[in-house]
Structure formats: structure tokens, C-alpha cells
Design a protein around this nucleic acid. Sequence first.
DNA 1: TGCGAATGTCATAGT
DNA 2: CAACTATGACATTCG
Length: 685
Amino acid sequence: MKYLKPWWSDGGGLLHLTILLSLAGLRVDLDLYLLLPPPTLLRDEFLLLGCPTSSAYALSPFPASGGWGRAGQLHPKGRESDLAALSEGQLFRELCALGVPFIPRTRVDAWLVHSVAAGDADGARGLLGSAAAASSSAVEVGASVDGGSQEATGGGGDPHEARSGPLATGEEQKAPAEPTSDMLDAGGRASEEIEVLRERCEAVGYSSQHEENEPRVSTLRESLQPNNKNKQNKADKPAWETEKTAKSRRHLNGTDPSLCLEDLFQLLSSQPENSLEGISLGDIPLLSSGSEVMNSSAHYNMNFSQAISQDVSLHEAMLLCPNNTFRRDPVKRTSQPQEPFLQLNFPTNPEQTNLTGFLPPVDNQMRNLTSQDLLYDLDVNIFDEINLMSLAADFDPVEVSQLFEEPDSDSGLSLNSSQGSSSVAKSNSSQSMYEEGAIGYSSDLDSFPHDLEGAVGGYSPEPICHRDHVIDSGFHDGVAFQHIFHNHTYHLQAESTSKYFSWPGMSQRVSRYLNDTDRNLSRDERRAKALHIPFSVEEIVCMPVDSFNNMLSRYNLTDLQVSLIRDIRRRGKNKVAAQNCRKRKLDIILNLEEDVCNLQAKKETLERERAQCNKAINIMKQKLHDLYHDVFRKLRDDQGRPVNPNHYALQCSHDGSVLIVPKELVTSGHKKENQKGKRKREKRN
DNA sequence: TGCGAATGTCATAGT
DNA sequence: CAACTATGACATTCG
């Protein structure tokens, strides 16, 4: 079978689950991949296998054949070959038809999942019994269980019969696992069988020390479990969980013939601590056989409670951040000491505005912020940005005049702008911010109070763009100043800070400094903002001319505003045109270079061909010369003397005959022909 | 500090 | 004629 490209390589998600469940009185390891919806549904790939797509999950081809290969460890002899008779595609189709949102990692897992999902308790139990029998040396109970199962079901544990349940019925197996009467009967038989099995287990010396359905594989395993967590958990559980637990047990006991894998998974996810002993994510070694279960039981016992109790979100599972530093743990974050960070408490009283207190010095700890902090704060800042939109202030005519005097050259329209990228690159580290802030952007910073500069340690205007968050957080709730360096989303900043903000009593210089983020805006954007033009530059530039004119007429705009809007539109369009022109020019140059290369290659080819032709011509000439002299060597005149090739020449006539002509006649004939040719050419001209 | 690349802007011709 | 595009030329920024 050909394995197609796994869809998770395109960004889909997949969780590796090793599930230990109690089924038919046996402890079973299921090694599964839980499918998470991929961003792009590779339906075509999936249908290539002839598998329908689940509504909730996109099923995919098996990730690799390696997991299947290990299934042989679990199979008893003879069983493996039977299972192997099914192609992976066939088995997988069965699972798909049953809506199983898992990719089993092993063939046995797939088979078990299939049996359970199809409500075939006999098949599942038979498989388990076979598996246990296969590892009877290590799991003595398993052998008894296997035998009991076979007795009780009249060979129900036989792998062949197990397979004949869901698979051999052809189209029936593709129907949803509805509880039919047969299944109910099977379920009833199953419960009876379980009781028989339990009795047999006790008869061979295995006494259950736990709950009636406590999974058990061996006494060794039991001994390796120091704490029976289930008991404790059960005591602590609310009523609804207890009810669910009972339901899950009914499922897991096989008494509910309508058991399907989705139910199972819901149970697993809803109360994993009780219904399962272990779900571990990540690189848990594949457990395929009973012996392996035993050997790794210590690992599980150590891991179960931890693994189950962890609230693993999909985000975390996808990120797989080793230290869980991405986790949004408000308690953890708020519990972090805040002292190292700058505190900002804006006084509501304008008289208390103290610049020195406003921007305290930056210490080294601030420079040592981790990347996780940066990421976290970036998200936080984005939300802060939203809050900032409510902080619009009034129009400042002084600012307008200054803006229109600014000499910098920057446009309002950012087209995949390198401006943004450069800004981001520039602010990739706090260190660089300091350095650049110390040397750059002198024009406006020169007018900025030095005490403030000193207070912030030479901030560049770009980090100052984070003042949004500073003001927001500091002004409203006194949150620390820690986010000031962390937001790298300068584009978003530019978008969201399109309004001025201030508060009563804020000094003009502080306002100017804080609003110096406008340097991140283009000149036109700043101008538009200063004139309170109610459209974005992008709108102005990209809008169709009709809409543009309607917009101008609909709004009551001043002449200055209209003029600026038209200039913005003209410049923006011209900027695009210039970029297109340059791109076109570059393309032309590249095409010309390509043409030059092609022509050079063609020239070389032609030269090679010419050399070959010349070589062939020379060979032909040589052959002709040899032939010529060979003919003359053999020629004899009337007296039988050889003909001198210097006096005579061979001449081919039109009818193919060859004449021996004196060279004098040949040369005169050539002269006449040349003259005729000349006359003809002259006539043509 | 000079240099070159990238980009914005203006003027102008063309569509 | 207005609007837009294309392009050369110049200025500015930045690495």
C-alpha cells in the first residue's frame, strides 16, 4: 500500500495517546493517534484510500507503517497472519466507516478500536483474550481469561470469529454502530462472560483488591501501584462524575453494546482519572503486549496521575513548549515578583505629573526578559491596543504645523512595507533599542526634555510606541510598566494608535513625546491624523474614484482636508506606480539577462555546430580529393598513358555522366558562368 | 564618512 | 478634461 503524505505535515494536529482501558475485564493498551482537524482538509488524499471523511475529523492515511509492524508482538501465532491478511486500507476503511477519530498505531489497536466501535464485544474480547494468551507467560491471568472467554462464547475469543463480526459482514459493517438486538444479546452475553472471567480470575488466585472493574493485568502490576488513586478520586468526585464513571464502566465492561469509540473518547476526556489510569501525551513508548505493559507499568504508574491530571490544551499540545512557559497561567504570572519591572502610576492630578517618576530607570533585569515574556506581553499588548482606542484626544493645531514642516520622506501607504519590517528588526532586542535610541532620531528627541531621556535610558521612539500600553495600564489600573519593550507589532501599533490620547493636565512636551510614536506612521498618515481626516490612508488610496468623490462630497471637509486627501491619494497611487515600475524594470533587466544567457548559450551551440560542419566538410573534401586522384590514377588516354590531373578535370554533367575536360575549357567556362551570374544580379538590383 | 540599494516624491508624458 | 499610469530624476533613509 502506498502511503500518502501525512496531512499533519501541513499543519494539522495529532495527539499521540496511549490509553489504558478496562475492557472485558482486561487491561488494554491502546496506542492511538487522535486526529485533530487539519487546516486544510486533504479530502482528496483521503478519498484515495476509499475512506469517507468524518464530519468532525478529517481522517487520514496511517502515519507510518512502523507502528503496524509492531503489532505482531501482541498477536498470538496465527492471529497475526489473519490480521495481516487485511490490508491497512481495508482495516482503516472499517474504522472510518465507524467514525473513529483515531489512528491506531498498531494493527491490533486498529482491530480493537474497530471491534469496540462496531459494538462487537465478542470481537474485542476475543482479541484481548488472544493477546493475553500470547503473553501468557507474563500475564498468567490473561491465559485464564482467554480460555474463559473462549468457553463462554463458544469460541468467541477466537480471532477468526472476532474478525468475522464487523469485517466479514460486508456492507453491514459500514453502518453506524447502532444497538441492534444481536448486539444487545452480545452485550448481555458479554456481561455474563465477564462474570465468568472474574470468577476464573479469582479461582487462579487473583483476588481483586480494587473496584469491581479495576483494570488488572497481573499481581505484579498491582504491586507496582502503591496508591490506588481511583479510590480516592472516586470519593472526591461529584455526583455527575460518579454517574459518568458508572456509565463508562458499563461501556468498558462491554455491557453496553452501543459502545463506540467516540463515547469512549468522551469518557476518557471527561474523567480520565477514573475511567483510565493513564493517558500520556508525547513520546510514550508503544505498549503492545502484556509483557510490555508489565515491564513499563512502573513508568505508567508513575506517569498516570500526572499525565491525567494535567489540563493539556490543544494549544499546548501543538506548541509542545518544553517548559510550559507559553501557558497562560494568570496565577503564575501574577505571582511573579513585579518589583523588577517599572511601575507606572499616573497621577490623576495633573500637578503630580512627574516625569522622573513616570519613566524610571531601566535596570538590567528588564533587559533580561525572556522570549516567553515577550510573546506573552505581545498578546497582552494587542488587547491593550484595543483598549487604547477609547483614549482619543483632541486635535492639536501645533502638532499639525509641526507635522507639515517635517522634512522626512515617508508615505502613507505601506505596501508590504519594509518600514514595518525594519522597525521590527530594529526592535528585536531590547539592547538594540537602547543603542538606537541613543543615537537615532535626533530631530524630535532633541526637543524632548533631557530628564525624560535620561529617565528612560535613551529610548528610541520605537520602543516608546509602547507607551500605549503604558498609559493604558498605568493610567487605569496601575499595572506595571513591564510591557513597554515587548510589543513588536509595529504595524498594529500604527493602526491602533491613529488617535491621540492625553489626559487633562498632561504637559505638551510629555504629550509630544508620548505621541512621538507617530514617527512610526508615515508622513501622510500623520498629516491625516493631525487634520482629523476620518479615513485611513489605505482607504483614501485604494478607494475607487466614484466612491472617493462621493466620500469627499458626503463629508463636510475643509479645503485643507480635501487637498490633503487628494495629495495622499495621488502620492499613494504614484508610490504604487513607482513600485510597479521598478519591479517591471527589474523584471525587464532580469529577462534581458536571461535572454543574454540564452543567446550566449545558443551562440556557443551554433559555434559548435559550425565547427562540426567544417570538420565534416573537410572530411568530405578530403574524400573527394582522394576519389579524384583515384579516378585519375585509373584513367588512361588513347595510347594507354595515365591522364595528368593537372591538365584535365572531371566534370559532372546534368544527366549524371562524368566527362574529362581539359582545365583550360573548365576555367573559361567558369568565367562565362560568373559573368552570367553577375549580369543576373545586376538585373535584379 | 562615503557608497549603494531601496524607497518616496515630483514632474511630465502618455493612456 | 479628469483620472490614472508609467517613468525619469531627485531626495532621503539605511545598512
